[in-house]
């Protein structure tokens, strides 16, 4: 997935020490990152990490408390309206217009971008087809399923042919079929050169879609990089999970300096090497309840952000 090299060096988003406070709470604490043209960039993080706050600053919904933010080579404090003509936003909440039909939702939204009606009609037709909502044109929004609403929000975000697509949890609440369909669409958009910035709680989604990503927590960026590289650097290749580990096994792991996490009833061992350790463990310490699997982005995420529940 290391496709980064094929992108030009044009920077689409440049965030420098961007901060956002709500009273005493620092929701985003001096974060810096850049997104290049054609890239798919992910922001991951537990609930309350500051993802939505970051995104809201990007499209000018929330004024920044400090720092500098440049979108499409324009400082956000200078040319916000001009920037907004060129970006598409899918907010975390489905705020479709319940007073309008599916078709009208797109047409009315197109009007906000000064798109003339005939063109809006054509575009709506195309996008409803693109996201598999053609048969729902005359329906009211309330008659759609959650997944269809989400896809309509995505269609709406594409109405102005954006150069940058900003998606806050685009696939939350979708069934696996819809989710894969959305992934396919996003990949297709990216192959057309559209830059995408997204947040998600699905690690497989981030690993599948993102060229680069950051993991945030408490308003700060913990790590940044390509998904595979993050996995290699922070977890390794493989993971061994042991259910109900016995004391001998614990001692063995501790004394051999392996990376591990002890969850009480479960022990997670990050093995950088091959499966030799797994064979040793499963033969000598645990006959069953011992699993050997590939390391995933989820391991990185949990390792970096901890396992406690958030607010």
């Amino acid at each position: 997935m290391a496709k980064a090299n094929k992108y030009s060096n044009t920077v689409v988003i440049r965030a420098e020490n961007v901060r956002k406070t709500f009273g005493a709470l620092t929701a985003v604490d001096s974060i810096s990152f850049t997104v290049k043209k054609g890239e798919c960039f992910g922001i991951l993080g537990p609930n309350g990490a500051g993802k939505t706050t970051t995104i809201r600053m990007l499209y000018g919904f929330s004024p920044i408390t400090g720092g500098r933010l440049e979108i499409l080579n324009t400082d956000i404090s200078q040319g916000l309206v001009q920037i907004k003509f060129r970006i598409g936003v899918c907010q975390q909440e489905n705020n479709l217009d319940p007073d309008l039909t599916v078709q009208q939702n797109l047409e009315v939204y197109a009007r906000y971008f000064d798109i003339p009606l005939p063109k809006a009609r054509r575009k709506a037709e195309e996008l409803l087809g693109f996201l598999g909502l053609n048969h729902r044109k005359p329906n009211r929004v309330a008659e759609l399923s959650g997944g269809m609403m989400r896809r309509l929000v995505l269609a709406r975000a594409l109405i102005n042919d954006p150069e940058l697509l900003i998606l806050d949890e685009p696939t939350t609440g979708l069934d696996p079929q819809s989710r894969h369909q959305v992934w396919e669409r996003l990949n297709e958009l990216r192959s057309r050169g559209i830059t995408i910035l997204l947040t998600t709680h699905y690690m497989d989604e981030a690993a599948h879609l993102c060229d680069r990503l950051v993991i945030m927590d408490h308003g700060r960026i913990l790590v940044e990089g390509e998904p595979l590289k993050l996995i290699r650097d922070h977890v390794g290749h493989n993971v061994i999970e042991v259910n109900e580990p016995n004391p001998e096994l614990r001692d063995y792991i501790c004394s051999h300096n392996f990376g591990y996490e002890d969850l009480g009833h479960r022990l997670i061992v990050y093995s950088r090497a091959n499966d030799a350790l797994f064979h040793k463990l499963s033969e000598e310490y645990c006959r069953e309840g011992c699993v050997f699997r590939m390391a995933t982005l989820e391991d990185v995420f949990l390792r970096l952000t901890g396992r406690e529940l958030r607010e």
Binding site: Y59, G60, F61, V81, K84, F85, V89, Q91, E93, N95, L96, D97, P98, D99, Y109, Y112, F113, D114, A157
Partner: peptide, 14 residues
Amino acid sequence: YQKTYDAMMATPLT
């Protein structure tokens, strides 16, 4: 309730 303004604020509308 409908968050219509929120949606509008993601467009060129102020």
